[in-house]
Design a protein around this nucleic acid. Structure first.
Length: 415
RNA sequence: CGGGGUGUAGCGCAGUUGGCUAGCGCGCAGCUUUCGGAUAGCUGAGGUCAGAGGUUCAAGUCCUCUCAUCCCGACCA
């Protein structure tokens, strides 16, 4: 992508109505645009980051047998009435509207009910199970208070996976697979070391649900971390009973702030019984399907990563989710030779399949180009100038020293 | 939903006890200059001062209401 044609631009000052670091940096660098409180559009750079994250999550979901689909945002109220979650008194985040004929519809804030009702059309035999389906979908939640930039919004992209199993054993086996897949995902996203498997409230269905919590001061949750065991306990379930159950002593725990980047939950067979999703087992008996639900807040992850990986100059994207792999800076000025050389470097890199943001802007001083590069946060930088001649200069976003190398040598770093 | 803060150009801000055609910086357009960390200069465009109502000879400034937005709390599979 040539910077000169990118319609977004960087800005020096963040809007004063953004306090959260993630939103300030993402807006300054041109990744997102705020529409209203808790509602952000994703601009080309932000969209690319989103897609990178989605690709990683998709790969790991597919590996454990997930099948991708996409549900609708418009949901009918009947299915939510079955589980008594249509009432605004029971669920306070509903956005609702009416069709022209006055039929009430809801905008999906979750999809458990809807997708389970749909699966009744496809699951009737033990031969149809297990079925594990997932989607990347925009959730709409009428939060009373949006906050923390993109971390707590009214409209956000979520990966939600639902598992339908024949038995608790089959369910637990898959549940554990998801835990492993999530660890892999967070590792690939660059936040593995800061993300902890956390015991949280299980609600009416089980004793615990499990969360994946990433340590950050910008997080909303308080968790108690056991660093040696690499697990944590959400404040909401921290009792002596739970501690003894997990064989943890209170004094071994460290109280920290964290952001929930994933949540996995067992519903048992309860919800399928309510909605009427049963299957015929080998012996001909009717049995309820066992349901599990597994979420990852894609857009929240972006915010968490920016909170974790940034400095006073800007963002520092982890390798795997950077919008581009390298940021090529041309300091050509009016020098035609340097211009040509920069174009040649750009063409060769892109031909090799390397994703390049090429700052080919004329009339922009070098300092501004460097500042923009720091702000946007692509981890690798390549400079072409009168000084570099037949070589190119390489510098890491976080490094101080740069080095001259041949283009081939450079390309070999990325292929 | 309770408490507190903020609304003046695309962004960041100034605007005194109410007083003339509402300013500054950045950004934007044109010209010149410069070209390894936001170069310098000149010219120019851009404003229902969040909205409505009120007080006054006169309101960006005072009063009332509304809206938006941020923060704290409550809430949060």
């Amino acid at each position: 992508m040539r910077f000169s044609t990118l319609f977004t631009k960087t800005r020096k000052d963040a809007p004063k109505d953004e306090i959260a670091k993630n939103a300030q940096l993402l807006i300054k660098a041109g990744f997102i645009h705020k529409e209203m409180a808790g509602v952000y559009s994703y601009l080309p750079l932000g969209k690319r980051v989103q897609e990178k994250i989605i690709s990683i999550v998709r790969e790991e979901m597919d590996k454990i047998g997930g099948q991708e689909l996409v549900m609708t945002s418009l949901q009918k109220k009947e299915v939510w009435e079955i589980t008594d979650r249509w009432d605004d008194e029971k669920v306070d985040v509903w956005f609702k509207a009416k069709l022209k004929n006055d039929t009430e519809v809801g905008f999906g804030w979750s999809h458990e009910e809807q997708i389970t009702a749909m699966m009744k059309d496809y699951i009737s035999s033990y031969r149809d199970l297990p079925a594990n389906v997932y989607q990347f979908q925009t959730k709409l939640r009428n939060e009373v208070r949006a906050k923390s930039g993109v971390m707590r919004t009214r409209e956000f992209v979520m990966k939600d996976l639902y598992s339908y199993s024949r038995s608790e054993e089959e369910h637990n086996e898959f549940y554990n697979k998801v835990i492993e897949a999530y660890h892999t995902i967070y590792k690939r996203l660059g936040i593995g070391d800061a993300t902890f498997f956390t015991f949280a409230s299980g609600g009416a269905f089980t004793q615990f649900s499990h969360e994946f919590q990433t340590l950050t001061e910008a997080g909303e949750d308080t968790i108690y971390l056991h660093r040696d065991k690499k697990i944590a306990i959400n404040e909401e379930v921290l009792t002596d009973e739970v501690l003894s159950q997990l064989e943890i002593k209170r004094e071994e725990l460290e109280k920290v702030k964290a952001a929930e980047v994933g949540n996995i939950f067992s519903f048992g067979s309860n919800k399928c019984e309510q909605i009427g999703l049963y299957y015929s087992d080998k012996d001909g008996s009717q049995k309820p399907v066992v349901l599990g639900s597994y979420g990852i807040g894609i857009t929240r992850v972006i915010g968490v990563i920016v909170e974790l990986f940034s400095d006073e100059k800007g963002i520092v994207w982890p390798e795997n989710i950077s919008p581009y792999t390298v940021h090529l800076v041309s300091l050509a000025g009016e020098d035609e030779n340097v211009k040509n050389r920069a174009n040649e470097v750009y063409e060769q890199l892109t031909t090799k399949g390397i994703e390049v943001l090429f700052d080919d802007r004329a009339d922009v001083p070098a300092g501004q180009k460097f500042s923009d590069a720091d702000l946007i946060g692509i981890p690798h930088r390549i400079i072409v100038s009168t000084k570099t001649g037949e070589k190119v200069e390489y510098k890491a976003r976080m490094g101080n020293e740069s080095q001259l190398m041949s283009l081939d040598e450079l390309i070999s770093k990325f292929i």
